[in-house]
Amino acid sequence: MGAELGKYKACVSARSTDKEILKHAQDGGIVTSLLGYALDTGIIDGAIVAATKDFAAKHPSLIMRDNSNWDMIEPWRPIPAVVSTKADLLAAAGTKYNISPNVSMIKEATRSFGLDKVGIVGTPCQMQAVRKLQLYPIGARDVGAAVALAVGIFCMENFPYQSILQLVEDHAAMKMESVKKMEIGKGKFWIYGKRGQVVQLPLKVTHKYEQPGCHVCLDYVANLGDISTGSVGSPDGWSTVFVRSKIGDSVWANAMAAGVFETQPIEKVKPGLELVTKLANEKITKNKNTLESRKTFGVGKALRNPYI
């Protein structure tokens, strides 16, 4: 294929040099460190991240409003929020494997939050959304040029909240509030409890709970982020980083010069880009097949294809 990893100027394996961030981060703390550095240096004046229940309780004015019962925000339910301090960034670190509509805040960030330079983290589809609204700003007046740093995270699939609930509480027999970390890696879904217990579920079990919209997704490594990152390809505790756009290039170079990250050449680490390429191709091929089968889904009737 050749296009599965998108355009990039550089690819490295990297890790934050901030021990505190590494303690809270999902992988190498790339996202939190990068946004923190961008805040410190004025590259951005706020960032849209996936915050949590605790954060929402403390800062009800910084989060997205939704229709659900506000007193009943569950543990591990991400809530898009606009943060502008490193402490708040840190509080939002870590992967929540369910939907956080981060782009819903992008206009508001430039309005009531008053940001001129917005940072945003998101899945590949959310990076696509950001770029579409820059090129075709239909309901995004003056927003496109305010996006100062878009950090993409790799993504094979996402889950509805209730799927995660089902996986954790039914399949793994754990309480949501007792979970310290969730992770997909090495072919398994891992659930780490606060008391040290670890449960692993085979992906065979998790597949059917995936968000259906993910099955037409043709991007694994956030091809449209300024910088994109994920765990795959790098050793435990490290992240694979693609530096993609001119903005990404300059932010990464400055962050490196400031000592925010330590890096290793991607060619030197195991399993390296080979695995990233393999997984990207698997995802794209599978989902292209889904799109293909949607053409003949009914009897002489197709399901829609969003791509033109």
């Binding site: 997205m64 409003r65 939704d66 229709n67 659900s68 339910r77 991400p78 898009p80 369910n98 939907i99 956080s100 509509p101 981060n102 782009v103 819903s104 805040m105 992008i106 206009k107 508001e108 998101g122 899945t123 589809c125 959310q126 696509q128 959304a129 579409k132 609204l133 239909i138 309901g139 995004a140 927003v143 996402n158 509805p160 909240y161 209730q162 968000q211 919209g213 993910c214 997704c217």
Partner: peptide, 20 residues
């Protein structure tokens, strides 16, 4: 897939997200 663009685009805030 729950990106949130629609809620952001709506000029009258008619769209919110519930569980994404």
């Amino acid at each position: 897939m729950g990106c949130g663009s629609c809620a952001s685009a709506c000029p009258v805030n008619a769209i919110t997200h519930e569980y994404g």
